[in-house]
């Protein structure tokens, strides 16, 4: 039996599962990036700063819970189906975005913020021109992490009806059929690496060169 057999003979199935995987990923991940950024920003506003550490601790605990457990938990409440899968992926990949956005912002040197205030920047200007831009490397690593975690977890989410390439992999594992396993493993690995590379390029474009040497106080 040849490794590529299943892949070649059933390429329509593989393509269909791949596009399923991509769609589930894109929906859940973009939601977690948007909402994660929003929450990360909200909890670092002046009035909310009492809760920043609480949320950071909470999300670092959440990150230590295996994704399988989260998926099963969401299943308990919402049953089987695509929406359940998307929701559990959204929850799980939300955490790194919140964590990195918030920690990136609160770790900015306080004097820089104070100078920005002293120069007459409004709260909004400080957020968009100073805080987010300086925290961008950290935020980006959260977003990339979130994408990679999402794609991996989406594979597992096949077991609660998420569809995608996980279906192929688990079928292959269940039948101990190397050719089927491979037909799922190859595209999902390529997908993960591609998405991460695209984000890496985007990061390089968007992050200021001035932040590359952030060691040493400025």
């Amino acid at each position: 039996m040849n490794l590529f057999d299943y892949l070649f003979n059933n390429y329509q199935i593989v393509l269909q599962r791949t596009s399923e995987h991509i769609i589930v990923f894109l929906i859940s991940w973009s939601a977690s990036v948007l909402i994660g950024l929003l929450i990360g920003i909200l909890i670092t506003r002046e009035k909310m700063q009492k809760y920043t550490n609480f949320v950071l601790t909470l999300s670092s605990i959440a990150q230590s819970i295996p994704s399988v457990a989260i998926i099963a938990l969401v299943f308990l409440f919402f049953g089987i189906g695509k929406l359940t899968a998307i929701f559990s992926l959204f929850i799980y990949s939300l955490v790194p975005v919140i964590f990195n956005t918030a920690s990136g912002i609160i770790n900015i040197d306080k004097t820089i913020i104070e100078v920005a205030e002293g120069m007459g920047m409004s709260k909004k200007e400080i957020l968009f021109k100073v805080e987010l831009l300086i925290a961008l490397p950290t935020i980006f690593s959260g977003i990339r992490n979130s994408a990679v975690i999402n794609i991996a977890t989406a594979t597992v989410a096949a077991v609660i009806g998420g569809g995608g390439l996980g279906v192929i992999i688990f079928t292959g594992l269940a039948h101990y059929n190397v050719s089927i396993i491979f037909a799922g493993v190859l595209p999902v690995s390529i997908l993960a690496i591609t998405i991460d590379s695209i984000l890496a390029i985007l990061e390089k474009k968007l992050v200021s060169k001035g932040l590359l040497y952030e060691e040493g106080k400025l």
Binding site: L3, T155, L173, G184, D196
Partner: peptide, 16 residues
């Protein structure tokens, strides 16, 4: 790069 490979996929690779 290797760390971006999903873990179930890695299991699959091991089996292979």
């Amino acid at each position: 790069i290797l760390m971006t490979i999903p873990s179930p996929a890695l299991f699959g690779i091991m089996v292979i």
